Amino acid sequence: MSGTADPKLTDLPLRPELKGEEPYGAPQLDVPVLLNVNENPYPPSAAVIADIGRAITDAAASMNRYPERDAMALRDDLARYLGHGLTTANVWAANGSNEVMTHVLGAFGGPGRSALTFAPSYSMYPEYARNTHTEWLTVPRRPDFSLDVDLALRSIAEIRPDVVLVASPNNPTGTRAELDQLEALCDAAPGVVVIDEAYAEFARPGTRSALELLPKYPRLAVSRTMSKAFAFAGGRLGYLAAAPAFVDALRIVRLPYHLSAVTQAVARVALAHAPEMLRQVDVLRGERDELERWLQTTGLDAAESDANFILFGRFADRHQVWQQLLDRGVLIRETGPQGWLRVSVGTPAENAAFRDALTEVLPTAERAGDE
């Protein structure tokens, strides 16, 4: 007798709200052009890779010890990167922005509490709520995917949510909220407000960050990630800036030693190389704008994006279009409102391959609303 028993999932005493659920996961397929999960297509340079290797070697020398529990040195580096007068006490870090958001809802959500966002938005948000037993509520955006501030304020006054969560630039639409809109939400919210700026570095020049609002609002937090602009998706490092008391609340719910010594070490290397790591952001921003203009010339709708991806449509059968692109070696994302697809911005060669594939597909693709 070897191995384990082999029950079906339905044989196990799973929490009722998890029955029938599927694990999160965008397709990970081996195709020539990967434009589906908003990764930065440019890998680290040889110099950065060498420094990461040395940092891992140094960390390995003390691997028999637990890592620095609160990642103070890393948080200090992150505070310096963000600027705005922030200090180590203002910053929290975790394994990707996913864990940061789970900490937020673990501290401020939970049974009998609610979280509100503005749909369509990031598909993982309701899963964070589900996993923390937080009631999940949504209010629709306008048809152009901008915030309907009047509706948002009325909804906040009626619902009185414990957490208001706004992605800006928003995923999957790429649209950003203006700073005065975010300020209005902060004025109205009875609980905490989290502005998710995962794609902030890709916003158009002159875009103001919600970091400017932190001195005025003690219940505001602004989350970021190193996965996108820093080309550090494999490093799994997300972070948040807020008042020290807000950070202390997250420290209560985090698991002990949640950030490994290796994660802390390599993230500090990436931050030390910030100018180099961020150099491709301008290139990707230009490619995004060019790709957005091209999509519009095809007669498709393309949401105005301040991120490193574009939502475009509308198709009567988006899955068919997605599959036909995949058949041509181009993987994009079937996400967002019905009829829309999302493409990440890649290298010039990858973007050209996407354009060529879509050009072949469009003549047979039925548009939503076509007779």
Rank of each mutant, 00 (worst) to 15 (best):
D327T: 07
A303L: 12
T297H: 06
L311Y: 08
R318F: 11
R293F: 12
A302W: 02
T297L: 03
R293C: 13
L325N: 06
L311T: 11
L300Y: 13
Q296A: 15
F315S: 01
L325I: 13
R328I: 05
L295V: 06
G313K: 09
W294P: 10
L295N: 04
I310A: 05
L311H: 06
T298V: 06
L331G: 04
L331I: 06
A307D: 03
R328N: 10
V321R: 02
L326P: 01
D301S: 13
V330P: 02
F309M: 08
L331H: 05
Q320T: 15
S305G: 01
T298C: 14
Q324V: 09
Q324C: 08
Q324F: 05
Q296Y: 10
N308W: 01
L326G: 00
R314Q: 11
G313A: 13
L295D: 02
L325V: 10
L311I: 02
W322Y: 13
G299Q: 09
D317T: 10
T297C: 10
W322L: 14
I310S: 00
A303G: 11
Q320L: 14
A303M: 12
Q323C: 10
G329R: 01
W322P: 04
A307V: 01
R328D: 03
W322G: 03
G313F: 07
A307T: 02
H319E: 15
S305Q: 00
R318N: 09
G313R: 02
G329Q: 01
F309C: 05
F312K: 06
A307C: 03
A316R: 09
F309E: 04
L331A: 08
F309V: 01
L326F: 10
A302R: 05
F315L: 03
D306F: 00
D301P: 04
F309W: 03
A303V: 15
F315Y: 01
A302H: 02
G299C: 09
Q323D: 14
T298E: 14
V330Q: 05
Q296G: 13
D301A: 13
D317I: 06
F312D: 04
G329H: 08
R293T: 14
V321W: 01
V330N: 02
D301Q: 14
R293P: 09
Q320S: 15
E304A: 14
F315V: 04
V321T: 01
W294M: 14
D327S: 12
A307R: 00
A316K: 06
Q323E: 15
R318S: 14
G313H: 07
F312S: 03
E304N: 12
Q296L: 15
R314G: 09
D317G: 09
I310W: 05
N308Q: 08
S305F: 00
Q324E: 14
A316S: 10
R318Y: 06
L300E: 07
D306C: 03
S305K: 00
H319A: 14
F315T: 01
R314E: 07
G329Y: 07
L300K: 12
Q296C: 14
H319L: 15
Q320V: 14
V321C: 08
Q323P: 08
A316D: 13
W294T: 09
A316P: 05
Q296M: 15
A302V: 10
Q320N: 13
R293G: 11
D306T: 00
E304H: 11
G299T: 04
N308G: 05
R328V: 04
S305L: 04
A307K: 00
A307E: 02
Q323V: 11
L326T: 00
Q296R: 15
L295E: 00
W322T: 04
L331D: 05
F312L: 08
S305A: 05
L311Q: 12
